[in-house]
Design a protein around this nucleic acid. Sequence first.
DNA 1: TTTACTGTATCACATTTCTAATACACTGTA
DNA 2: TACAGTGTATTAGAAATGTGATACAGTAAA
Lengths: 117, 117
Amino acid sequence: MEFKDNIPIYLQIKQYLYRQIVTGELKPGQKIPSVRELAVQLTVNVNTVQRALQQMNVEGILYTKRGEGNFVTEDTDLLEKTKQELIDDELNKFVQSMNDLGVSNDQIHDILSAYLK
Amino acid sequence: MEFKDNIPIYLQIKQYLYRQIVTGELKPGQKIPSVRELAVQLTVNVNTVQRALQQMNVEGILYTKRGEGNFVTEDTDLLEKTKQELIDDELNKFVQSMNDLGVSNDQIHDILSAYLK
DNA sequence: TTTACTGTATCACATTTCTAATACACTGTA
DNA sequence: TACAGTGTATTAGAAATGTGATACAGTAAA
């Protein structure tokens, strides 16, 4: 995996997993790869993976069975809510950035349309 | 200024100044506040400001007159090009993020419209 | 019980980022 | 010239991040 050097890797790992979960690539109740597997996959240290997973555990999106592995939560309401939050966050950042660059809300649509072609 | 703790402050300062420049709040040829002024304004160390300005200097968006201060470039072509690049970068990030979250290009418009109301 | 797989904890170290203090160098103006 | 305002450089230290190695602890299955 290619990491941006401006953002802590453990945060990028969280984002990577979050996205796999909310898109259903990792399904509710499904076991995710072990910390050691992920560490190899992502060419990163075990501790760095651990840090990401530990936080996602606190956030409730994962649960840990010690000795077995980490699993995606089965709380589909939480998953749906999380997905909406992630999308809203992105919308927020985007609109804010465009405004800061002098692009009004009205103009955003046109610029986006042009961009998507 | 409120800084996000995940992104280096000098990068946020760069972004802050870039945006003031491309929106014309700071005009071509205009002197920007001194490193010491900015440091006080942003409640940040002089060295941190210096680091941001030094990079913007390399990038050509600012030029330095030693003993006088830093000035916005008068190369309006570069300014226009820079603005376009910043906008395109934001569009890129946004569309990429939405795709990663399972939102297709077709859906983006609707979601954006809903959000802007 | 043993083995192999899990997660967890700890330590030492390097790097990046940021602060803080100080000094130096250049410029315009009184 | 002297001074006040600029940018620049250097040094030391703290905190956050990441690596690497090692050990410990729980679980499932042979």
